[in-house]
Amino acid sequence: MRSSSLQTNIVRSLRILLLLGIVALTFGPLYLDLGHLRFFTEVFSLLVLAMMWNLVAGYADIVTVGQHAFVGIGGYAFYAFAAKADLNVTEAMIAAGLLSLLIGIPITAVVFRMRAAYLAIGTWVVAEVCTLLASKIPGFGGASGITLPSTVIRAVGANVEARFSHLYWMALALAVVCFIATALLLRSRLGVGLMAMRDNEEAAGSVGVNIVVCRIVCFLWTALFLGLAGALLTLQNLRIQPQASFSLIDYTVYVIFAVVIGGIGSIEGSIIGVAVYIGLRSAFSDYGNLYLIFLGAVSIAIMLAEPRGIWGLVRRYLPEDVIPVSHRYRPKTEATPAE
């Protein structure tokens, strides 16, 4: 036995803590004030962004620096469906996610013409194009953007309290659905293939999964959830505007830093990363640019010294993942003889 019962108990406790946390958060509007409701709503959205970047960069080997493209598309699509097509808020959100997925298909076709680091910068080009195009769509406020009609805002909740609570629950629901769905995706045959690829490209072929298909599915998967998150963020911010809805800093840079610090290649890492990032932000946000310099330096240091981040460090002392996404893969590695 390599792991002591103490370590196993720690993992178990962390799992229970995670579940209790979700349950406790479900009742958040009963005990949180408006400021905290807003704060957590933002945390949940950020969590979705982090899990999505981790999925593509940590598992599918697509190190995108243009994920703000889908967030913005989701935002603009939400505006179109809610303010122009008069769908109700939920329908408009789902439609926005689906449209983001749909637009993701041609985007995939273009950026997958490139590989590795080229693909990374290619996604950035695409995001630039989306941002510029968004300011050109007639009826969406051009470069200065446009505010959501008050009918849409009122549809979320009659007063501020109701609105904040509903937004909170929507964000929590999105984060939980995204979390569970992504964990299931990683536990599926597709996830097995991706994890095999991460370790060894040849082994991946022998698992019998088409790696290119896996990567495309992952990329589109993030298009869907990022679109949904974009719709939600629009509802929070009450407006769309090209530079804000397609914010490189907010929806890509901070997210990358959070995931890298928390630990790339694990869902736990994304959660920890968001928590650390939020904590640091409350403490140091007054320093503005200096804070970003600090985050950049920390990320560089982590990449060079401990590429698996905080969770990677912790995980060494634990017998298994808290969120068991890879247990179905492990027996297969053992079955493969070492070189």
Partner: peptide
Amino acid sequence: ILPMILVTFG
């Protein structure tokens, strides 16, 4: 490619 992208991005 992760270190290359993230370090230069940082």
